[in-house]
Simulated assay, not measured.
Amino acid sequence: MDYISTHQIKPGDKVDLKSIETKSRGSFDDKDDAKAFTAKTNDAIRDLQYRMFVEGKQSLLVVLQAPDAAGKDGLIRKVLGQMNPQGCRTYPFKVPSKEEAAHDFLWRIHKAAPAKGKVSVFNRSHYEDVLVVRVEDLVPKKVWSKRYEIINHFEANLAAAGTRILKFYLHISPEEQLERFGKRLENPEKHWKLNTGDYAARKKWGDYRQAYEQAIEECSTDHAPWFVIPADHKWYRDASVAGIVHQTLKDMNPQMPPVDVDLDEVRALYERELAK
């Protein structure tokens, strides 16, 4: 299955999230089939990420956006976090600190962009500044409405410097979200995630949906595409994102650098030490 073409929002496409399914099985027979695919694909991702790290010429940025309980943390744990942490780092963007708020909205974001050979995973991102600030009326429309163009220029700059960008919107239904909120209440290990603000945000579900639709429409480009991932089935969410990341790394085609030492000389030194 070609997960890229299935879930990518092409430049110029209109986005109607109500018409996009949240519950997909893809081509999988069942949950176990999907989990087996994800495990196998994770192995291939780790190999390609290692090659990219050693090559040191390209980088990958993965952006995750979603309503609460859609599974950003789970996706990181089960797929993206499976990469070698020596070359991969996750950045959770929360409410800006005092220092961050004193700068332009991309200041803290640019600092977290991946260096050559590295992968950065954004758990929430610069898109909060055209989502939350819009719906919660934190800044005037004349401010946030200009940010789409600024974001596009920022991402184009990263792409020109050798960074591939993948942006995922985890598309969950309000019914599934509420069910997961209930499971959090039943699980003491997840009580730290409980937040009354999550229920307040549900009252603005339609407003957030419109904000996401416009952000995706305005900022899905050839060099920084958005993907809308059905997220009601966690196993499909994980498998489809793994498939897209794997295919992207394959397309990047990282190469191991040529050997610049005399292998015969190194082997002779080794054997000499071994014989002592």
Rank of each mutant, 00 (worst) to 15 (best):
S125C: 09
P230R: 03
Y236W: 10
V261D: 07
V63W: 01
H191W: 09
I229T: 05
I172S: 07
K203H: 10
E213C: 07
N157Y: 09
I76C: 04
I76W: 00
F122R: 06
R209Q: 14
D198N: 11
H153A: 14
L138C: 06
F168N: 04
D207I: 06
I165C: 05
D33M: 08
G12H: 08
V15P: 10
K141W: 10
K142V: 15
Q65G: 08
F154T: 09
S145I: 11
V259Y: 03
F105E: 04
Y236P: 03
V130L: 01
A224K: 08
I76R: 00
K10M: 13
A160S: 15
L64H: 02
G74A: 03
R108L: 07
H233L: 13
R209K: 12
A159Q: 02
P254F: 06
I4E: 07
K111S: 12
A160W: 00
M83L: 13
V245W: 00
Y3W: 15
Y236T: 06
A161Y: 00
D13I: 08
A161H: 12
P230L: 07
A211T: 07
T221K: 11
D198L: 01
Y270C: 10
P254Q: 04
H171W: 09
P257G: 09
A156E: 13
E217N: 06
Q82C: 10
D222N: 14
R25A: 11
L185W: 07
S125L: 05
T6E: 10
Q255D: 11
S5Y: 01
Q177D: 04
S145G: 04
A268P: 04
D29N: 13
Q65V: 12
R209E: 15
E100S: 08
A268L: 13
V133T: 14
K146Y: 02
E217S: 11
Q86F: 07
L138D: 05
V15Q: 04
R134D: 03
Q247D: 15
A224F: 06
Q214Y: 08
S120M: 03
D29S: 14
E271K: 12
D68H: 03
V135H: 05
V119T: 15
E136A: 11
D30M: 06
E186I: 02
R147P: 09
W144M: 07
M83G: 06
